[in-house]
Design a protein around this nucleic acid. Structure first.
Lengths: 183, 183
DNA sequence: TAGAATTTTTGCCAAAGGTCAGGCGGTGTA
DNA sequence: TACACCGCCTGACCTTTGGCAAAAATTCTA
């Protein structure tokens, strides 16, 4: 289980209620966990493995987000609005995941305020990560962004180049050239 | 005052406590509300006017965010981490603002859970906006982003081009050319 | 209102990145 | 084994955007 305790300590009762909600799921490589066009009704936490959020733009597969061990993965624009999203979630490697029914989780907030607080803090972190990513997309060169990503996690080595390229906002071809020039 | 009620109704007691925290401030055009390098300890809500979050990259002034009537403006990466940020806040026009001491607000959460919920929901909206902006920076052309911005609010007409350019992730010169080509 | 300062536009050239097409090596499968 | 497929690389050429500089337009201010 995730190290929630580092973020905010919740009561045993809340912990118990939360545990009731958790479903452990294991997916093979390249499994489509959530299809494009669905609504986000599940909060996923990656126990071990890797996954990505993606969508199609002009027929091209674009990776918006990567998640690895202990990362949470949700499609915020759907989870927090109730609207369906044109984004999907797919595993990259074989992945062990903890799935939480979002609706039930939100319902628990009424009984367990500490649970609401815990998840508020968790989502705040995600928010901050998103702001930082925005910053890097706004004014860093593709090469800088690639180097930043390389430094962020060793997992990057295992991710197909095509996923990385769109995540960086460039084409595979350009990323291949950037890599080449780095040698 | 903001239409909080549309988001989540809070008790009279919470409303009262919140009102105690609110300071109304009026700033002239181009006023530096929060300097670069400071920590974000205040939640601002714009009553009337416009402001921006900006920072310097390689000596260039970069606008990260615009806010207009009824928008909240905070530097999330500092507010939620406690770390100082290299970003500042500046008015664009004469602006009437409601300022909330963030520390006191967060303290109120312990007594007023409905206040915590209200602000959780408010920040979730901000989070969603940030995700959408990320999406547009990742794979839309500068021209598309400019047109999107134009459609988003009439205020854009009043914002200096140099602010808009960096917000879109391009230089003033490029934006000027894009504008020209649109005629 | 004149002059200064700032903002926006334009021209010219360079660099980054996109598009299209083909090549090459590894993997899977009949 | 042969062949198809996939992922990544490379070349040629094009488009978008950047850098620099200067002109034009606008705004500020005395």
């Amino acid at each position: 289980m995730m190290q929630f305790d580092n973020i905010y300590k919740i009561s045993d009762a809340a912990k118990e209620a939360l545990n009731q909600l958790m479903r452990e799921e294991v997916y093979p490589k390249n499994a489509l966990i959530q299809p494009v066009g669905s609504s986000c009704r599940t909060v996923y936490i990656i126990k071990k493995g890797s996954a990505r959020i993606f969508y199609y733009k002009d027929g091209n597969d674009i990776t918006e987000h990567f998640a690895f061990d202990n990362d949470m993965i949700v499609r915020a624009e759907s989870l927090f609005t109730g609207q369906p999203t044109s984004k999907g979630i797919q595993t990259i490697d074989r992945t062990e995941i903890i799935a939480l029914d979002a609706f039930k989780l939100f319902q628990l907030y009424d009984q367990h305020h500490d649970l609401e607080r815990l998840f508020r803090l968790i989502f705040e972190r995600e928010y901050v990560n998103t702001v930082k990513r925005l910053e890097s997309l706004q004014f860093k060169s593709a090469k800088e962004r690639y180097l930043d990503l390389l430094n962020s996690t060793d997992y990057v080595q295992k991710i197909p180049l095509k996923y990385i390229a769109s995540y960086l906002g460039i084409t595979q071809v350009s990323l291949s050239r950037i890599r080449n020039r780095l040698l």
